[in-house]
């Protein structure tokens, strides 16, 4: 009699910056390659059609003990996730994630940013975190800390001019990531300052 294929254990979701990774302990069998199949159901399915599970876009048959379910989680509601092992014609029982996952629990890290000068222009380039991310950029002339300016940058990965700088005066910048799909934002990054060499004009 063929021993039943063990089901994957220790399911968990690791979500950072709206990238959601379902992970589990691999099923280890000597000299065998075990595959896995992942399925999901949103709150709608669990409320109205609880018998229906939808195959994950990227992991209906996958080798590694993890699955990027970011493209499956398309609403800010709780999602059930399950995975089973597959070996040849054998399939294990399903293992279901203990707690439903909601994308509003994703960890938002400080946005990476590069502050530079292009001639007299203060320029920022933010980390490209994907289409769901916007950024609030705050910048100021160092001696005029009370006169902060802010600007919403719709996308990362491209240099964005902020202001024309006076020579000899340091300008500082900080930024936070905004994710409207879940109505949350990250903390502000550390401030970074740059200066255009030259004689500073007296402050009026």
């Amino acid at each position: 009699e063929v021993a039943a294929l063990p089901a994957p254990q220790n399911l968990s979701v690791h979500s950072t910056n709206m990238k959601h990774l379902l992970m589990w302990s691999p099923v280890v069998l000597a000299e065998e390659t075990v595959y896995y199949s992942v399925e999901y159901q949103g709150e709608y399915e669990s409320l109205y059609t609880s018998h229906i599970w939808i195959p994950s876009k990227w992991c209906s048959l996958t080798e590694g003990p993890e699955c990027d379910v970011s493209d499956d989680i398309t609403a800010t509601v709780p999602y059930n996730l399950r995975v089973r092992a597959i070996l040849g014609s054998q399939t294990s029982a399903w293992s279901i994630l203990e707690e439903p996952f909601n994308r509003n629990s994703t960890i938002l890290t400080l946005p990476g940013m590069k502050v530079s000068k292009d001639g007299f222009h203060l320029v920022i380039e933010l980390e490209d975190l994907g289409p769901q991310f916007e950024f609030l950029v705050v910048y100021w002339r160092k001696e005029l800390v009370t006169k902060e300016h802010d600007k919403v940058v719709r996308r990362g990965g491209i240099p964005v001019p902020l202001e024309t700088m006076e020579p000899g005066a340091p300008y500082c910048v900080k930024a936070q990531a905004l994710v409207k799909a879940i109505g949350r934002n990250s903390a502000f990054s550390q401030e970074e300052c740059v200066e255009v060499q030259g004689e500073a004009l007296p402050l009026m």
Partner: peptide, 26 residues
């Protein structure tokens, strides 16, 4: 959605249907 679901389930349109339905739930 509830009563039309069986037609959707027969096709491979479940992911798109799920996106619509779950956002309506939200």
């Amino acid at each position: 959605f509830k009563n039309y679901h069986h037609k959707i389930a027969e096709s491979n349109m479940l992911p798109s249907f799920s996106t619509l339905a779950n956002n309506f739930v939200f």
